Simulated scan of single mutants.
Amino acid sequence: MKPYGLVIAISLIFAGCNSVGNEKISTKHKKWSPKYAKGFSFEEKDGVTYLNILNPWPGSNFKQQFALISENDSLKANKSLAINIPIKRWATSSTSHVGFAEELNELNSLKALSGTNYVSSEGVQSRINKNEIVELGQTGQPNIEWIIRNQIEVYLNFSIAENASVQSLLEKAQIPMIYIGEWNEKHPLARAEWIKVFGVLFDKQKQADSIFAAIETNYQKWKKRAEIEGNAPNIISGSPYNGVWYAPQKNSYMQKFYEDANLNYVWKDLEYTGSLQLDMEFVFNTGKSASIWLNSSEYQYLSSLEKLNPLISELSSVQNSGVYNTSKSKVSEGVLFYEKGVVRPDLVLKDLIQIGHPNLLTKHKLHFFEKLRK
């Protein structure tokens, strides 16, 4: 991708200029920030477009900047900080990155990833079985030797903190390591908007923009449909582990989904560092009457849940079979929600609306959730 291609697109978005005949396109605006996401931006300097990565984990002030260049450009820059567009050989530490690549039909360029047993994509699993995609090793400890030996052009990294040792080794080999911080975004559309980063890396910016625009339109349409439903059912969320109930906190990613699906999450005003940690007595006293229980851990049967604590069987959601969990993958040990739901929040929202307001979506089939069986 020629760097000025992105610059022109950015200029058009902000300045509303058109190129007709010999008229010049304005490039006055040099920076572009996404509509929802806070973890990345683009800017143009001296005719070169740069990708900025901003604060990719909670509480960080970490930043990265990469020059986006074509193979024909003569930019003189540290190769570990410059990315040839489009990338043709990449590796990743996160299955959520697979979801973005699949939307852009870029699975063939993926060569390795961490957690091959958890990938839900049938296309990726097929290539794994053919040894066309290999296991890269534990997240945070990738097989650096393999990455270098197999001429990987870019390593996409999920991390909850700076991984300086891996980054240093890859920089010495002149291989960029990009911290992809979509998971740190709070708004569902903000996470999905990271497809624009993948679009630029694969030189498919227009396609990525079009995909996101359709997702945003669908999401907002169904959000408005849910708003007209006056009755918001009470719901609880999360699951118990070793006597502690872990649940989404105020202003979290899942809490935003519940709000937009017009579901009354009973703990929506509670704040904590990370997930809420509630005791069972509090859960019972505040959530007993909730008609729906979402994200109930890995269990598929109500009887399995009831064995965890005697109070669970007294919850209305359990008594009325209103308990839902994220669906298991049909081709791996993974969960489709964590791979595909990130890039398709519109489908997640439709699932939640169907669960809470079934009269709005009588023919909708759940994509990411399933009701627990007795």
Results as ranks from 00 to 15, higher is better:
359 N>T: 09
132 E>N: 10
315 L>R: 04
299 Y>R: 02
129 N>Y: 12
174 Q>P: 09
253 Y>Q: 08
289 S>I: 04
150 N>A: 12
122 E>Q: 12
92 T>A: 11
104 L>M: 02
241 Y>Q: 10
179 Y>S: 07
171 E>P: 04
359 N>K: 07
166 V>H: 04
240 P>A: 05
353 I>C: 01
201 L>V: 05
352 L>Y: 02
139 T>Q: 15
216 E>V: 03
114 S>E: 05
281 E>C: 12
343 V>A: 05
235 I>N: 04
372 L>C: 14
191 R>M: 02
125 Q>N: 11
86 P>L: 03
80 S>C: 11
293 W>Q: 07
60 S>Y: 12
29 H>M: 12
47 G>A: 02
255 Q>R: 12
288 K>H: 13
157 N>K: 14
91 A>W: 02
146 W>V: 09
283 V>H: 10
294 L>A: 08
233 P>M: 04
191 R>E: 05
167 Q>D: 10
212 F>Q: 02
180 I>D: 04
314 E>I: 12
92 T>F: 11
202 F>E: 00
322 G>Y: 00
270 L>H: 15
129 N>L: 15
372 L>M: 06
289 S>Y: 10
63 K>S: 15
29 H>V: 14
118 Y>Q: 07
60 S>E: 13
302 L>T: 06
186 K>W: 11
197 V>P: 00
187 H>G: 13
205 Q>M: 11
92 T>G: 12
349 L>H: 01
99 G>I: 00
207 Q>I: 11
350 K>G: 00
51 L>T: 01
244 V>A: 10
338 Y>H: 06
229 E>G: 03
203 D>M: 01
122 E>P: 03
238 G>Y: 04
162 E>Q: 14
294 L>F: 07
306 E>Y: 09
215 I>D: 02
199 G>A: 00
151 Q>R: 15
240 P>N: 06
314 E>A: 14
286 T>G: 15
211 I>D: 05
233 P>A: 09
248 P>G: 12
227 E>G: 02
107 L>Y: 01
219 Y>I: 00
90 W>V: 11
210 S>R: 05
255 Q>E: 15
30 K>F: 13
336 L>G: 04
65 Q>N: 10
17 C>W: 06
305 L>M: 08
94 S>E: 05
326 T>A: 11
23 E>G: 08
207 Q>K: 13
1 M>Y: 06
131 N>A: 09
162 E>I: 07
119 V>R: 09
67 A>W: 02
357 H>V: 00
227 E>L: 04
18 N>A: 14
68 L>C: 01
261 A>V: 06
210 S>K: 08
347 L>Q: 03
23 E>D: 13
50 Y>S: 02
356 G>N: 00
124 V>T: 08
57 W>N: 09
51 L>P: 00
328 K>S: 07
274 G>H: 13
228 I>T: 14
58 P>V: 13
